Amino acid sequence: MIDLDIGGACPRQQLTCALSQALGLPTDPGAGTDALTIGTMDYPSEPALEMVARAAMQARQDSLMALFANDQISICAGIALIYRTKDGAQIMQVEPCRLSRGKPILLVTTDRRHAFRLDKRCVLRSCAVPSSAKVERGVERAWTDIRAAMITVEVDPEQWEAGYFSLFADAQAFADFMA
């Protein structure tokens, strides 16, 4: 679990923007970014993640979801990657990993069996998993960099609507949000 408290403000929009930048996606939504969707999910559940996986397959977009236990908390329970395969989609818990400063992050599964990075076309591709020592330092470095970016990122509401999303897996939480 990662505490993303940024001074009382809800961290979800800043986190999705910071993750997008850290992965090396273009800062403006548009061509080249439609292969990966980045968002947050409050009240995650297996059925909700399965729903996102089906939507990812239908839309032909991988999805990266920061998971929060509820809509009030600033602690991220983890990050789920919905990665499309030829047979459907896999749902994996991943961590961001920055192997060296100035390089885009890669995503490493928590079991350290798989790693993914964006290619030149901004499509998520499988890659070799770095050594355990590099991954552990890289995860710490990535979260430090993401937290720092969250503090400085300015969220444009129009850009948020166009390129990012939040998903409420609980009907009451969605109703509260809309009220």
Results as ranks from 00 to 15, higher is better:
residue 55 A to K: 13
residue 101 R to Y: 01
residue 69 A to D: 13
residue 100 S to C: 02
residue 48 A to D: 05
residue 60 R to L: 11
residue 80 A to K: 13
residue 69 A to M: 11
residue 53 A to M: 11
residue 76 C to M: 14
residue 58 Q to P: 02
residue 54 R to W: 03
residue 65 M to S: 07
residue 85 T to P: 01
residue 88 G to L: 09
residue 58 Q to R: 15
residue 91 I to D: 00
residue 88 G to I: 05
residue 69 A to G: 12
residue 64 L to D: 08
residue 63 S to L: 06
residue 102 G to Q: 01
residue 53 A to W: 06
residue 96 P to L: 02
residue 76 C to F: 04
residue 95 E to C: 00
residue 62 D to E: 12
residue 59 A to R: 14
residue 90 Q to Y: 00
residue 45 S to W: 01
residue 75 I to A: 12
residue 101 R to E: 11
residue 74 S to P: 14
residue 42 D to I: 10
residue 83 Y to W: 10
residue 81 L to V: 08
residue 70 N to C: 13
residue 81 L to Y: 10
residue 46 E to P: 05
residue 94 V to L: 03
residue 48 A to E: 10
residue 56 A to Q: 10
residue 99 L to E: 07
residue 99 L to T: 07
residue 97 C to N: 03
residue 83 Y to S: 10
residue 96 P to T: 05
residue 61 Q to A: 14
residue 69 A to P: 03
residue 94 V to C: 03
residue 92 M to K: 12
residue 56 A to R: 11
residue 89 A to E: 04
residue 66 A to L: 02
residue 46 E to N: 08
residue 82 I to T: 12
residue 99 L to Q: 10
residue 84 R to E: 01
residue 85 T to S: 08
residue 46 E to G: 08
residue 95 E to D: 08
residue 68 F to G: 04
residue 52 V to F: 04
residue 85 T to D: 07
residue 49 L to T: 06
residue 75 I to D: 11
residue 101 R to C: 01
residue 98 R to A: 11
residue 47 P to V: 05
residue 51 M to N: 13
residue 67 L to W: 00
residue 46 E to S: 10
residue 50 E to D: 14
residue 83 Y to P: 00
residue 78 G to N: 09
residue 88 G to C: 02
residue 67 L to G: 00
residue 42 D to W: 01
residue 48 A to I: 06
residue 102 G to V: 03
residue 48 A to K: 10
residue 58 Q to W: 08
residue 43 Y to T: 09
residue 74 S to L: 02
residue 89 A to I: 07
residue 60 R to D: 15
residue 70 N to M: 12
residue 49 L to C: 09
residue 97 C to L: 02
residue 95 E to H: 01
residue 100 S to Y: 01
residue 100 S to H: 04
residue 68 F to K: 13
residue 43 Y to K: 04
residue 68 F to D: 01
residue 90 Q to C: 03
residue 64 L to G: 08
residue 82 I to Y: 00
residue 90 Q to P: 00
residue 97 C to S: 10
residue 59 A to M: 12
residue 52 V to E: 15
residue 100 S to L: 04
residue 56 A to V: 07
residue 57 M to I: 14
residue 81 L to H: 08
residue 64 L to E: 09
residue 96 P to Q: 06
residue 102 G to Y: 01
residue 91 I to Q: 08
residue 62 D to R: 11
residue 100 S to R: 13
residue 61 Q to I: 04
residue 70 N to K: 07
residue 63 S to P: 02
residue 41 M to E: 05
residue 70 N to A: 11
residue 46 E to R: 14
residue 95 E to V: 07
residue 85 T to F: 00
residue 55 A to G: 13
residue 53 A to L: 09
residue 72 Q to Y: 12
residue 76 C to Y: 05
residue 59 A to V: 02
residue 68 F to N: 08
residue 74 S to H: 13
residue 96 P to C: 06
residue 90 Q to I: 06
residue 74 S to M: 06
residue 48 A to W: 03
residue 41 M to P: 02
residue 66 A to M: 10
residue 58 Q to L: 14
residue 68 F to W: 10
residue 74 S to I: 05
residue 86 K to E: 15
residue 88 G to N: 09
residue 53 A to G: 14
residue 57 M to T: 14
residue 73 I to G: 05
residue 41 M to T: 07
residue 60 R to K: 15
residue 93 Q to R: 08
residue 76 C to R: 12
residue 66 A to I: 04
residue 96 P to M: 10
residue 70 N to H: 15
residue 79 I to P: 05
residue 79 I to T: 14
residue 61 Q to M: 13
residue 99 L to K: 06
residue 97 C to W: 00
residue 100 S to K: 13
residue 85 T to C: 01
